[in-house]
Design a binder for these strands. Structure first.
Lengths: 234, 234
DNA sequence: TGTACATCAGTGAACGCGCGTTCACTGATGTAC
DNA sequence: TGTACATCAGTGAACGCGCGTTCACTGATGTAC
């Protein structure tokens, strides 16, 4: 309740626009997102939306940031509510939070993690922050787990030199302490997590292949936890 | 060179239509795929394409099948050319073939494995066959590797009962002999493989995060091979 | 081999629709004195 | 507290564009006898 009535009305309208925009995302997809349709649902003439949003692309950016933030909020909230001692459990909770959000908001998930929208390029300055919240949560979790001695990196495929170099840079940039193997495996786990979720959201498993996709996902998460050597507090 | 000249012209035109369609997929994306634009590039009036394709959706189906088949062909060809004895190597070759194709044909990859096209539902009778060639190649490869004693399933997370039940059904359906753990892990490896490729094709790693994405992918593939316990011929 | 008919590819006009964006405007709200 | 002015939300018309699909048509190609 700050500012003039006009200010508050503006904030309200901006929220309405993103809400309606997300509805349209769900029914028609990002590529068909249209300012005119949003204006219609907003009960306003099409040119009026230009008072709030410079162009269709700016609306897309708005929805992108809104989606990233909603996902980021939910993931952080879920992890914060989980066991503070067992980092394996925290990882499982994080993964499930991403999946739950993705299944509830498939259209926004598709915008963030699916095919790029043709002709649209996200402005990095605005989207990088919100867009990296999940991976930052994952990195933080792994770092704490490593520090707590809850990670025993499995042996196996050696990290190629160029990957080791990249990983070294990342370690320094984020102030991490885990070994190359862990960081490299963590990147795989991150990509694999979204791979599993995308398969489910984008319907890549056939219609009748799995009777209990949730159990399948939980199992996949558990194997991914094994892959990074996350033993937990045992 | 079969049939009348008219028949041959028709086959040629059908090929032109799918070729042009795929070009448009690359420049404008699936959601913006338009029969009129295809007609323009074909050098023909818009209504003429209806002699070849019943509707826009049918063109999408054509492109879907064309893409699945091109990917299937390349994957099968690559695997066939690989070492006949070492199934770990065959797996790596398979994974690389998928990635190579995906990077060369990002738009078609997006159509097959990215966000669903709003308002379009693929006709299962036509697409299921071509659409399952990669997973069938993977399943066949794992089955042979298991039979050849080149798989040592790692211990770790237990397979939940409902997943075990699904996996049992799949085992019988495809006449497989591997244990539950292997089949369940194989499903993860499948989803994870596409997760890694999607991250790369859809630009989810930042612009400057990795200097050598190919090496990163090779490493990820190797870890996935470890995950299913694919030791190879040693 | 020649002719009559059927099939088919492609035309051009039309239908009704939606889109992004600009612009001059009206009238309400906010601000400075 | 009242008034003059500036700011802003929303209007309605317009621009030029592209879309899917239908339909009656022309002219070429193929087929049956």
């Amino acid at each position: 309740m700050t500012g003039t009535p006009r200010d508050r009305a503006r904030v309200q309208t901006m929220q309405d626009i993103t809400r309606i925009g997300r509805q349209h995302l769900a029914t028609d997809g990002a590529a068909a997102l249209s300012l005119r349709a949003v204006a219609r649902d907003l009960g306003v003439v099409s040119s009026a939306v230009y008072r709030y949003v410079k162009s269709r692309d700016e609306l897309l950016t708005l929805l992108l940031i809104d989606g990233y933030d909603e996902l980021g909020d939910e993931v952080e909230r879920a992890v914060a509510a989980a066991s503070a001692e067992d980092f394996r459990i925290r990882f499982l909770v994080l993964g499930r939070a991403v999946r739950t959000w993705a299944l509830r908001e498939p259209a926004t998930y598709a915008l963030l993690f699916g095919s790029p929208v043709p002709g649209y390029q996200a402005p990095g300055e605005q989207t990088t922050g919100p867009g990296t919240r999940v991976i930052r949560a994952l990195i933080g979790l792994w770092e704490q787990a490593w520090a707590a001695g809850q990670i025993v990196v499995p042996g196996g495929a050696p990290v190629p030199p160029t990957v080791a170099a990249d990983v070294t840079r990342i370690r320094e940039e984020f102030g991490l302490s885990g070994p190359d193997d862990l960081l490299a495996r963590a990147i795989l786990a991150w990509a694999a997590l979204f791979g599993c979720i995308s398969f489910e959201v984008f319907d890549q498993y056939g219609p009748d292949t799995f009777s209990d996709v949730e159990a399948l996902f939980d199992y996949q998460l558990a194997v991914l936890a094994d892959t990074v050597g996350l033993v937990g507090a045992g």
